[in-house]
Every structure is written in C-alpha cells, then in structure tokens.
Design a protein around this nucleic acid. Structure first.
Length: 250
DNA sequence: TAATTCGAGCCAATTAGAGG
DNA sequence: CCTCTAATTGGCTCGAATTA
C-alpha cells in the first residue's frame, strides 16, 4: 500500500474508521466523496483538509509531513512511495557505549548503490549528511543505537523520516535481532556469515593496530551486507503488513 | 430534537528488546 | 555489558454520529 491509501492522519479518524472506509470501497484519497460509515460533516471536513494538505506535501516531496501525520508505527506505509531513494544505513563501532567508543565504518545502501565511509579516511560529517539526507532513512534498532551514536560523534542533523525496522518486525513476531530476522525471512547471507557485531570490533582492531587490510575488507563487506539486507527485510515486511492491514479490507 | 452509543485521543505506568 | 524507544494496557473524557 501507499500513503494515498491512508486516512488515519485526519482528525476524528482512527483505525476503526479507516478500516470501515476501506471496506466501503474508499481505499484511496480520490475515492472519498464526503460520506461513509460513521463519517459525519465534521469528520468529512477534516478528511478533505487532510487530503488537500497531503496531496501538496506529496507533490513537494515533503515526506516529513507524513512522518509527523502518521502514527509512528505506520510510517512503513510511506515506503512504496519513496522505495527507490531510501537510505538504508548501518554503523560499526568499537563498542556499545557512545561515550567510550567511536564509529569505525558507516554503510549506506541507497538507490541500488552501497557506499561505505571508513574512519580515518572518508568518514566525515559532510559525507554522512549528504548520504543520509534522503526522503526516508531505514535501519534496524537505529533509532536507539545508530542515529544517536552518529549525532554524538558528528555535527549532523538527521531529520529525514526514520523507519526503524525493529518495530514493524516485532509486530510481525520477528524478533531475536537482525540475523535471526534474516533467517526467519529467508534473506540470504552466504558470505561473512560468521561475522557479528563483536567480531566487527575485533576486525577493526586488527586493521587499526596491525595494518591488516584484509580485516578491513572483511569488516566493510559485512557492514555492506547488513545495509543491503535491510532492504530485503523491508521489502518482505512491507508486503506482509500490506497483507495484514490493508488487503483483508478491500 | 433529545437520548444514546461510538470511538478518537490522551495519559500514566509497564515492559520487551536490540545494537557493537 | 547499558541504555531507552515504542508498543501495550487500561482507564477516562468528550465530541460526534446514529437512532428514535
């Protein structure tokens, strides 16, 4: 589904009312004609003014409008609208605590290309800002880990709508961390499947302390797989949520 | 028009769960 | 290890829609 199927942001419309609209054939903004089950004059006006503002925001590419208007758990509805320019990102660090650890690599998978910035060479606030200034960014647990970590260490303003895949996954009973979710969804990770977060810390140390270029290559490859798999996960999750939330009612 | 039902929206407290 | 976002639950209020 796309954001144009959503009526939830209109005042007076909650999940129940939206579902009833869908069941009565009003599945898209253009289908709304001013009435419906449980829709009186006041709510109809609210829906019209939402649609008006939403259409302008969509034309202008103002994705923040929808991030603010939708309940945070429903931001996935915006994915199809911007799928070809979502910035999937993942960072590697020397540890979990942002005060005692530093960022080692950052990978961003966007528009089919994967870019990795490496500490000590091209990892700068400017490069990060350019890569992450997207209609939407996506991560796994990045709202609590990656984004605050980056903002603590770099002079950045990350204000693109941020879809943290951990929460939609949990909603679908997909838990146990990124690797487990990949296994459950059948997302392939043939290479570097013996690397995990802790191993990433060791790989960086071998590169930084012993000049082990092969260790860095391995770390970068691992980091890139993570971001590419985020896209595979979001594709699967968006499809499942579409089937659960939208399909049964149209 | 009056009475009644419905549901949105808010608040507070609680908890699960993930990252390197 | 450490930390904190967001989902959840339950209660409550009030505006709005429906019914008589």
């Amino acid at each position: 589904m796309r954001v144009e199927n959503s009526f939830l942001p209109a005042a007076g419309v909650g999940e129940r009312t939206e579902r009833r609209l869908w069941q009565h054939g009003v599945t898209h903004w253009t289908d709304f004609d001013g009435d419906g089950p449980g829709i009186g004059d006041a709510t109809a006006e609210n829906i019209y003014s939402f649609i008006d503002a939403a259409e302008r925001a969509l034309d202008a590419g103002n994705t923040s409008f929808f991030a603010d208007a939708l309940p945070s758990g429903e931001l996935w509805r915006l994915y199809e609208n911007v799928a070809d320019d979502v910035a999937f990102f993942d960072i590697e660090t020397t540890g979990l605590d942002q005060h005692s650890s530093v960022v080692t690599t950052v990978s961003v998978h966007r528009g089919g290309d994967t870019t990795t910035l490496v500490r000590g060479s091209d990892l700068t606030a400017e490069r990060l800002q350019a890569l992450l200034d997207a209609p939407m960014v996506a991560s796994f647990n990045g709202k609590r880990f990656d984004a605050p970590f980056l903002e603590h260490h770099f002079d950045l303003s990350l204000d693109s709508p941020h879809l943290d895949l951990m929460y939609p996954c949990r909603r679908l009973d997909l838990t146990g961390g990124l690797k487990q979710v990949e296994r459950d969804l059948g997302v392939d990770r043939a290479e570097v499947d013996d690397v995990d977060g802790r191993e990433a810390v060791r790989l960086w140390r071998r590169y930084a302390e012993d000049n082990d270029e092969a260790a860095l290559d391995r770390l970068v490859t691992y980091n890139q797989y993570d971001t590419q798999n985020l896209q595979a996960i979001l594709d699967a999750v968006a499809e499942r949520l579409h089937r659960d939330v939208f399909e049964p009612h149209v």
